[in-house]
């Protein structure tokens, strides 16, 4: 464990807490893409199958349970909670995310570290996580005004993988046989997708103005 990875995990956790706070405090999920939340639930379920087979550390196991439980709770809330689901922007959240799932599964079958069930699913989860934010970014552009909590949620979500890139650079230089090119390439793509959001987020922060994404 190194500081970059710890900061990455904490940033990721903060993003989830911000989203839970927004939904719980405002009883609303306006501006949040249910499709992105479903993709994240799929990412965690596909990646953390080793939760019961490979014990790495208490921290690792606890965080896996927290990520799986929180992502499923958010999807449940947005689909079933009688008050929250009424504020879901169903007509704006129209990204065909099943294509993302199919493309990532196809890519995972072609490119993975070892052609085994767990490795294919792990690669699938890495590829899917890289593109899972797309429905959310499309929804933000369509819904125009972005409320503060939603903006902060997306910002922390983007920042977490940027910390992971620093972690991979650090591990590359400090560990002998450290090869995670699947994660590195996907992580770079994932963080690059946030580039324009980060730009507009910084502008709104600098001008102390409302976060506006160009349509």
């Amino acid at each position: 464990m190194n500081i970059f990875r710890f900061l990455g995990d904490m940033t990721h956790l903060i993003s989830i807490l911000i989203l839970l706070l927004k939904i719980y405090a405002t009883k609303s999920c306006s501006g949040i893409s249910l499709k992105t939340q479903e993709l994240y639930a799929l990412v965690f379920l596909a990646r953390y199958l080793d939760l019961f087979t490979d014990f790495i550390s208490v921290y690792n196991s606890v965080m896996k349970v927290v990520f799986i439980a929180s992502s499923l709770a958010i999807v449940w809330c947005m689909r079933r909670h009688r008050v929250v689901r009424r504020s879901y922007d169903k007509e704006l959240d129209t990204f065909r995310h099943y294509f993302l799932v199919a493309a990532c599964l196809a890519l995972a079958l072609l490119v993975q570290e070892k052609f085994t069930f767990l490795e294919v699913l792990w690669a699938f989860s890495i590829y899917l996580e890289a593109v899972a934010i797309l429905p959310q970014l499309v929804l933000l552009q369509r819904s125009g005004n972005v409320d503060n909590l939603t903006g902060q949620y997306v910002f922390f979500l983007g920042a977490y993988r940027a910390f992971y890139i620093l972690n991979w650079i650090y591990r590359y230089f400090t560990e002998t046989h450290f090869s995670r090119w699947i994660s590195c390439v996907s992580g770079l793509v994932q963080t690059a997708l946030y580039a324009d959001f980060f730009y507009y987020y910084f502008i709104s922060w600098k001008n102390n103005s409302k976060l506006q994404l160009p349509a």
Binding site: R5, D9, H12, D50, D54, I56, N60, M63, K64, F67, E113, W122, Y164, N167, R171, E175, H177, F178, S179, R180, S183
Partner: peptide, 10 residues
């Protein structure tokens, strides 16, 4: 050895 190096991250 390289294997656990790739799966110890979240």
């Amino acid at each position: 050895a390289s294997n656990e190096g790739t799966k110890d991250e979240l």
